[in-house]
Amino acid sequence: TTVKLGDIKVTFDNPEKAKKYAQKLAKIYQLTVHVHGDTIHVK
């Protein structure tokens, strides 16, 4: 599962960890989390 934020891409083996990371980023940057299959976009 890949978390994308602009040019930053972080890949996790564990989808749950990816989701938590995405939510953490979203909170920090006051953005929202969008899940598209294996990719989680923070924008």
Rank of each mutant, 00 (worst) to 15 (best):
G6Q: 05
T11Y: 14
V33L: 11
D7T: 14
K20R: 12
E16P: 01
V33N: 00
F12H: 01
G6M: 07
K27M: 11
V35Q: 09
P15Q: 08
G6A: 05
V42H: 01
I8S: 06
H34T: 12
V3P: 03
T1E: 03
P15R: 09
T39N: 04
N14M: 05
E16C: 14
I40S: 02
P15F: 15
K20W: 12
D7W: 15
K43N: 07
K43P: 03
V42L: 15
D38W: 08
T39A: 05
T1N: 05
P15D: 05
K27Y: 12
H36L: 13
T2S: 06
I40R: 01
D7S: 15
H36G: 05
A26M: 05
V42I: 11
K9N: 08
D13Y: 09
T2F: 08
T11F: 14
K19E: 07
Q23H: 10
K27V: 08
Y29K: 03
K27W: 11
K17L: 12
T11V: 13
G37T: 03
Y29Q: 01
K43F: 15
K9C: 15
H34C: 15
I8F: 15
T39R: 03
V35N: 05
K19A: 10
T11W: 15
N14P: 02
D7F: 15
D38Y: 07
V35S: 05
V42C: 09
D38V: 07
K17G: 05
A26K: 04
N14Y: 04
D7L: 14
I28T: 07
L5D: 02
V35R: 06
L25P: 00
V10K: 08
V42Y: 04
L31V: 05
K20C: 14
D38N: 14
F12K: 00
I8T: 07
T39E: 09
I40E: 01
H34V: 14
K17D: 14
T1S: 05
A26W: 05
D13E: 10
V33A: 04
Q23P: 00
V3D: 02
L25A: 01
K43E: 10
K19N: 08
H41L: 12
I28R: 13
V33Y: 07
T2I: 13
I28C: 15
K20S: 08
H34W: 12
K17N: 10
G6R: 08
V42E: 01
H41R: 05
T1I: 13
D13N: 10
L5R: 04
T1V: 12
K43G: 14
Y21S: 00
H36C: 15
A22G: 01
I8Q: 06
L31A: 07
K27R: 13
K27Q: 10
I28V: 07
D7G: 13
K4A: 08
D13C: 14
L25N: 00
K24P: 00
A18Q: 01
D38G: 07
K4C: 15
Q30G: 15
A18N: 00
A18V: 02
K43T: 14
Q30S: 11
D13K: 12
L31Y: 06
V33M: 09
D7H: 15
G6I: 07
Q30L: 07
H36V: 14
A22P: 00
T32E: 09
E16M: 10
G37K: 05
K24E: 08
T32Y: 08
T1W: 15
E16I: 10
K9I: 14
G6W: 12
G37Q: 06
T32W: 07
I40M: 05
Y29R: 03
K17I: 10
H34K: 08
A22F: 04
H36Y: 12
T11P: 04
A18Y: 02
Y29T: 03
Y29L: 09
E16N: 08
T11G: 04
A18L: 04
K17W: 10
T32R: 06
V33T: 05
G6K: 06
L5A: 04
V35P: 04
I28W: 12
T11M: 12
Y21F: 13
L5C: 15
V3G: 03
H34A: 10
G6C: 15
K9S: 14
K43W: 14
D38E: 07
A22C: 10
T32P: 02
D13M: 12
K20Q: 11
Y29A: 02
F12N: 00
D38A: 10
T11L: 12
Y21L: 05
K9D: 06
K17C: 15
L5Y: 12
F12R: 01
T2K: 06
H34S: 11
K17R: 11
L5T: 03
V35T: 07
I28A: 08
Q30V: 05
A26I: 04
V33S: 02
A26F: 05
K4W: 15
L5V: 11
H34E: 14
Q30N: 14
Q23A: 11
D38T: 10
A22H: 01
L25V: 06
I28L: 13
I8W: 15
H41N: 06
G37V: 04
A22K: 02
V3R: 03
Q30E: 08
K24N: 07
G37S: 04
K27H: 08
T11C: 15
D38R: 09
K17P: 03
K4T: 09
T2E: 04
K17A: 13
A18T: 01
T2Q: 06
T39D: 04
T1A: 06
K27T: 08
K17S: 11
V10W: 15
H34M: 11
G6P: 02
I8K: 09
V33P: 01
D7E: 10
H36K: 10
I40H: 02
K20H: 08
K24M: 14
T1C: 15
K24V: 10
L31D: 00
H36A: 12
V33C: 11
T32S: 10
V35D: 07
H41Q: 07
K9A: 11
T11N: 08
I40P: 02
K24F: 15
Y21A: 03
K27F: 11
V33Q: 01
D7I: 14
T11K: 11
K24L: 14
G6H: 08
E16G: 07
G37H: 04
L5Q: 02
D7M: 14
I28F: 11
G37L: 06
